[in-house]
C-alpha cells in the first residue's frame, strides 16, 4: 500500500496542533475514484411518471414484502414524504412543480452506490464492500450489526431489521448484483415504463447526461446530481428543478471516508505514531526513573507534582 503522506500529516496535525487541523480533509486522490468498469444508472426525473412500478419490481427482485402489484398502485402514499425501509429498498416521492401544479416532480431514491462510500469505509469487517463494477454490496454473514454504516452514510440509506432478534440484516439496494451477473438489468430499470432509468457504464451515462442538458437547456437544470457529490455516486440524476427542493441533500464534493481514512492509514498502514508514542513513553519512564517516593497514608503532605 502506498504511503498516504497527507494522511500522515493529517494525524500529526490532529495530534499536535488544534489550530492547524481546522479544515476537513479533502478527498485525497480523486483519480482513484474513477473506475472504468464502474456501472451507473441515470435517472431522468423529468421522465418519471410516479407509477411506482420500480418499487414493485424491487420488491419482487429482492423478495421483500411479496405484495401484489395492486399494493403499489396506491397513489395516496405520495401525500407524505417516505423514506426507504428495511422492506423497501427504493421509494418514489412526489414534489411540487412550481411551473405546473398539475404535473408534479417524482423522485426515486435508493442507495446511491457512492464511488467512495462511507458505509464500506465504516464497516469494520468488510461486510459492505464496493464490487468490481462499483456496486456497493452486503455480506450478512460477516456483519456484526453495529450499524456504523447507517451513521456513516451521507444519504441515510442503510436500513436495519430491528425486529429480528437473531439474524438482523442491514438492508439496502445492492444494484441487483445477482441479476447483473445473469446478464439482466437491475429490476427497477427493466420495469420502468418510460425508461426514466438508464443503466450503463457510468462514464457513458455522464456523457449522455451532459448531452441531454446541452440539447434541452429549457428542460434540465445544468447539474448532474451524483457526478461530484461526495466524491461521485454511481446513480446520477437529471432534474428540471433545483435538487435541494426535491428531496436531495446539498452535499460537498469530498468523499466522506477522506475525513477518517487518512487517520486510519497513518495508524495502521504505517504504525509510526503509536510506536513513536510507545518509544516516547518508554523514554520518559526511563528518564523519570528516580521519581518521588511512595507516600504512606499516614504521612500526608502537600506538594505540587506538576511543578
Amino acid at each position: 500500500m502506498k504511503l498516504n503522506r497527507r494522511g500522515f500529516f493529517q494525524v500529526m496535525a490532529a495530534g499536535t496542533a488544534t489550530a492547524l487541523a481546522s479544515q476537513p480533509a479533502q478527498a485525497s486522490d480523486q483519480a482513484q475514484a474513477s473506475n472504468p468498469n464502474s456501472i451507473g444508472m441515470l435517472v431522468d426525473t423529468t421522465e418519471c411518471i410516479g407509477c411506482r412500478k420500480c418499487e414493485f419490481a424491487c420488491d419482487m427482485a429482492n423478495n421483500l414484502t411479496g405484495q401484489p402489484v395492486k399494493a403499489f398502485e396506491d397513489m395516496k402514499v405520495y401525500d407524505r414524504e417516505r423514506r426507504m425501509s428495511e422492506n423497501a429498498f427504493t421509494v418514489v416521492n412526489r414534489y411540487a412543480n412550481p411551473e405546473d401544479s398539475n404535473r408534479p416532480i417524482y423522485v426515486k431514491s435508493q442507495c446511491m452506490h457512492c464511488l467512495k462510500p462511507g458505509c464500506t469505509s465504516a464497516c469494520l469487517v468488510g461486510a459492505l464492500r464496493v464490487g468490481d463494477n462499483g456496486a456497493v454490496v452486503y455480506d450478512a454473514w460477516k456483519c456484526l450489526g453495529c450499524r456504523y454504516c447507517m451513521v456513516a452514510c451521507p444519504f441515510q440509506v442503510p436500513m436495519y431489521e430491528y425486529d429480528d432478534p437473531l439474524t438482523p440484516r442491514v438492508r439496502k439496494c445492492e444494484f441487483c448484483h445477482t441479476r447483473l451477473e445473469e446478464g439482466k438489468l437491475p429490476a427497477c430499470a427493466e420495469m420502468c415504463p418510460p425508461m426514466a432509468l438508464t443503466f450503463g457504464s457510468r462514464e457513458e451515462l455522464l456523457k449522455l447526461a451532459h448531452k441531454k442538458i446541452e440539447s434541452n437547456p429549457d428542460r434540465y437544470i445544468d447539474h448532474v446530481y451524483g457526478e461530484k457529490e461526495v466524491g461521485g455516486t454511481s446513480w446520477l440524476y437529471l432534474a428540471s428543478r433545483e435538487f435541494e427542493k426535491t428531496g436531495f441533500l446539498k452535499l460537498g464534493e469530498g468523499a466522506v471516508p477522506s475525513l477518517t481514512e487518512p487517520i486510519q492509514h497513518a495508524i495502521f498502514k504505517l504504525g509510526l505514531p503509536p510506536l513513536a508514542l510507545y518509544g516516547l513513553l518508554g523514554a520518559m519512564m526511563w528518564t523519570y526513573r528516580n521519581g518521588d517516593e511512595y507516600i504512606d497514608p499516614g504521612e500526608s503532605e502537600e506538594t505540587d507534582p506538576s511543578a
Binding site: 465504516a122 464497516c123 469494520l124 471516508p257 486510519q264 492509514h265 495508524i267
Partner: peptide
C-alpha cells in the same frame, strides 16, 4: 478492514 475507525 483497516479503513474503519470502528475497527481500530
Amino acid at each position: 478492514q483497516g479503513n474503519s475507525v470502528l475497527f481500530e
